[in-house]
Design a protein around this nucleic acid. Structure first.
Lengths: 240, 240, 240, 240
DNA sequence: GATGAATGAGGCTTCATTCAT
DNA sequence: CATGAATGAAGCCTCATTCAT
């Protein structure tokens, strides 16, 4: 019975789940390992060659298994991409979540997030950047749906962080403003990572990029607080 | 002889262009019209169905010509995408260029740019948004090269605008900061447009989105000026 | 535009259908010819090797075209089988229809039908027998639906013939009886053809087989007339 | 060692079978039970989904065993079908054999056969009807061979019954006639069962269908006796 | 210039079967 | 005996591209 059929660990006779034997545990471990191997191979290839130009056979080769095995673990090629995507999304959320965790109310959270994203995540996972910001774009309805959900979640997290900032710095201009800031920050991260990592390989600059980005964000956020009129006109119109 | 080749035929010897007969002019006009029709059909289909899921036959059908004709006007499918991409890039640059034109030194230029992008370009050309920000991503080396060049140009324009701002507001922290701001702004526009136009059809909110985005940008920019120490610590570190 | 998309002879600008030019006519003829060739190749192979064991490549080879061409004329493999099936069904109906045409009211119609089926159709088209009575069985819902429809039509024809017989020989026992006779006759033809043509190649005996079959049928039919009690008990219960 | 091979192990040396221990007997019983379960699962699935569309894994699932186990009991997928087929054939022969047993010389045997087939076998075993008359058609040389043998046996039985009828009703026209009648009857049963059970679910009508079929058969048989000239010309030739 | 039938390499996926545990 | 993960050949189909008319 294949793993991807979501009917794992069937117990035919309704037997109470026996505690796993040693060999069963090992088998489980090996399965997990194989799944990772395949996913890893697919991820690398998708990032390097592009999703469409990567054939299933190639993936199987790279993972040192047969095509059939790939299909034993994954429903189809799309499933491979979706799982890769979901994992990356999850990873990103955890990362940013941690960054925001102990900084509630402060803009420090954004600083942390920028730091961890540009200084750690990006240089370590360029292929995940390529995957989430390039290869997963416009592939199919299913992939797009996952992509949308991931981005929505990330935006939600950013919105939560922004909302908690309100306690410290005062209310924002409007709910939409929060929305806009969240999406903007995501867009910045996205384009900056892509720009300095994929298009130009300036890994070394990423730290500085992150710093500047974070300050840009800080300025932006502050500027969307329910500003007193005087400020407003100064800041945004810049003159009379 | 195909139009593509014909294009090359023109300049080499710098011959003085023979005056066109009336029928030649009409033919030229018709050719131009056909080219537009095909490009339009391709653009719509790429945006609606996705680049890969759109076959050449479908494009030909939509344009009411034969496949052969499509190949007469365009080298191949990729060429169709590239030309579409280039046009959109050009259009965007003109648009933003105009926005910045009479606002040198001021942040007003960014305000104009945001306005024109979110209030005019986006609602009128959702399929171009889809094309440049979705369909052209990760298709092939050639397409990616064009995409890169377009984005680079847009970033250059933004950098120029930022540089001219320095005269008014004082120098920026560093050259990299200008780079980062430019890419950030592009990323913001990109994600916001995609978010509010493609994923959620909130065309009506785009104007407000643009306003908030612009203010966010203004705040960001101001914050990356060579800030005097006092400010710096307040704004970005958020604590003493 | 592919033939199988049922959008034949599109006239883009709503032009009044121009009378066909000579070359257009020739092209149409050639298309028809090619279609026949492919269908013929498929039919032979299905009958000889079996539907499932026949690959599309093999069919293309046999028809001396490329796989793509097969798909240009037919939607998929199933379509090939369905069209073959429908044609055979149509042919059979015409044949039997003719046989019954000038024999209304008489059992002569059944005699003609048997003659033409066993003496002409069978020996000339063994592969069609194999196709309709063997290869088309249990292949897919779509195929089965066509098969059902064809058999239903044939049964309807037989029922019509039987009904017209009632004028001469008196009413049948019941409507169901007519149904049963029709299906029975079809079943006889089916099994006899299969038996003497496919399983045993006794083409030479088919004529005699047909004679006996026809007499069997005649006897059967007569026995399902609303028999007067005396007969009834003699014929069917055979005693008491 | 597989059951299939074990079966071959038995007779060669004619060793006196060692008396079985109790546990050996239980194992044998369980093995038999498992075999039945698998065969049952396969039968149902073949009838419902079709032979080709049923995968071995699905069969294993349904039988609540593993694929490996299926292969322990059966050589391959084809073997599953063949055994199912043979059993059904055997069952049918027994059934019809019984029906004919105590009716020698009379047409009563055919009446019994019809009754038992349409009233008992069909409504109780629709999936066996589907199997023998649909799924086993045109699958492979091996299956076809079994199918042929089964049909041949059934026809032989019918021929035997017909021959024994000759004692009562007089000689038939020819040996071929007997052949033809036998095949015809089989064909009738086949198509009628398929028609009223598979294509239309008119289980309730099967009894009446059987009655009419039987009378049809009776009439047919009588008509193929070495008819005296008078009858002959009226009934079947319908002309002088 | 325009047409559209023809091509065929290449892609994804299935599934009967095996075999180490 | 039973398991189920692994295999890989084979199948169907798509589609960008070409070229004779």
């Amino acid at each position: 019975m294949s793993v991807n059929q979501a009917r794992k660990r069937r117990s035919p006779k309704g037997k109470p789940e026996a505690p796993l034997t040693r060999s069963a545990r090992r088998r489980l471990r090996e399965r997990e390992h194989r799944l990772e191997t395949i996913l890893g191979a697919a991820g690398s290839l998708f990032a390097e060659e592009g999703y469409h130009r990567t054939g299933m056979e190639r993936i199987a080769d790279e993972a040192e298994v047969s095509v059939g095995t790939v299909y034993f673990y994954f429903k189809n090629k799309e499933d491979l991409l979706v799982q890769l995507l979901d994992r990356t999304g999850y990873e990103l959320r955890s990362l940013l979540g941690d960054a925001f965790r102990h900084a509630d109310g402060t803009l420090e959270g954004f600083r942390n997030a920028g730091k961890v994203f540009f200084e750690e995540f990006c240089p370590r996972n360029p292929e995940k950047i390529a995957l989430i910001f390039r290869e997963s774009a416009g592939q199919s309805a299913v992939v797009e749906a996952h992509r949308k959900r991931i981005f929505a979640k990330l935006i939600d997290d950013l919105k939560a962080a922004l909302t908690s900032v309100e306690a410290n710095l005062g209310a924002f201009r409007s709910d939409l403003a929060i929305d806009v800031m969240a999406a903007s920050i995501l867009g910045m991260f996205e384009r900056l990572a892509y720009h300095y990592l994929i298009w130009q390989d300036r890994r070394g600059d990423l730290s500085a990029v992150g710093d500047d980005a974070v300050d840009f964000i800080a300025g932006g956020i502050r500027n969307l607080l329910q500003a007193d009129p005087a400020d407003e006109e100064n800041l945004s119109h810049g003159r009379d």
